[in-house]
């Protein structure tokens, strides 16, 4: 595999995790535009742990995920009083806040960025991606996940039939923050250099785009969306300056034809039924 292909594949994996982090929140019907903030927390914390404290990478990623998850829960308590567009704006503010925090934080290099991480292979990245995809896939057939969907469908009714909707949303927020942190830690150790600019608003938007494009009702949609988002612009190279415009047009067309994204539950069901029949 050429380094170029390997690097593209690693980017697909990292974006898949970012997209999954948005997907988990979206499953409860909330939109987060600030997940790059949690990605930044994961990236800086994991890098600091491996470079300065000498912690092995896998442990560093687990610690980063846990810390970010806890921060997510703490942010979730006040933030989840907001809903819909207001919550989206608040998360956007959170993302920018974290970015400017790292811009000013001297121990992680401030605007100059942070380096010294040992490079990890694309295989290592994909072991994490595979693991988290399987975890999400398992959770999707759990009752906890049904509770999340109930919150998305009708929060008031969910509450009245006995679901603690606040806890469900906060749990989803924490889980989302943890997954985004893993994405950040892998990004940092694949690119071996990070700066606050890596974790701006555009990154959060990429996560959301990948979910919407790939399908927001099923975890595998994040994988499909991330692959398209990374690989499609490469395929359109021949178009040169028109590349972003062509990509934008494609995106609009896909959404017009399939508003639910490329993958969805019923499509998957059809596949599995066919398998059973065969």
């Amino acid at each position: 595999m050429s380094t170029y292909t390997a690097s593209l594949l690693a980017d697909v994996g990292i974006l898949t995790l970012g997209a999954l982090s948005v997907y988990v929140i979206l499953a409860t019907g909330q939109l987060s535009l600030g997940n790059a903030g949690f990605m930044a927390i994961g990236a800086y914390l994991a890098s600091y742990l491996t470079v300065v404290a000498g912690v092995p990478l896998t442990s560093a990623l687990v610690i980063a995920a846990l810390c970010s998850g806890i921060i997510g829960v703490m942010i979730g308590f006040p933030a989840l009083r907001l809903k819909g567009i207001f919550l989206a704006m608040a998360t956007l503010g959170f993302g920018e806040m974290i970015r400017s925090l790292f811009l000013n934080l001297e121990i992680t290099g401030g605007a100059g960025g942070f380096h010294g991480m040992a490079h990890v292979s694309v295989t290592y990245v994909w072991i994490w991606v595979g693991l988290i995809l399987v975890l999400v896939w398992l959770m999707e057939s759990s009752r906890a996940w049904l509770e999340m969907r109930a919150v998305a469908d009708d929060e008031t009714a969910a509450n009245l039939i006995g679901l603690n909707t606040t806890m469900t949303k906060i749990g989803a927020f924490g889980m989302s923050a943890a997954v985004a942190a893993v994405s950040g830690g892998l990004f940092a150790h694949h690119h071996v250099y990070i700066e606050p600019g890596n974790f701006g608003f555009e990154r959060s938007i990429d996560f959301v785009l990948a979910v919407i494009l790939g399908g927001s009702t099923i975890g595998a949609g994040s994988l499909v969306g991330a692959a398209l988002l990374v690989l499609l612009p490469e395929q359109l190279r021949a178009l040169d300056d028109w590349r972003p415009a062509a990509f934008g047009a494609l995106l609009i067309i896909v959404l017009l034809i399939r508003r639910q994204g490329i993958l969805d539950r019923s499509l998957l069901r059809r596949f599995t039924f066919r398998k059973q029949a065969a």
Binding site: R143, A144, L146, E147, R149, A150, A152, D153, D154, T156, A157, A158, I161, G162, L163, N164, T217
Partner: peptide, 22 residues
């Protein structure tokens, strides 16, 4: 007020919040 994305079966599973550890 049924949950718009859920099958009948899913409705019967989701509304047992007291049952079972996390």
């Amino acid at each position: 007020r049924l949950f718009s994305s859920m099958t009948v079966w899913e409705h019967l599973l989701v509304a047992q919040p007291g049952r079972g550890a996390l």
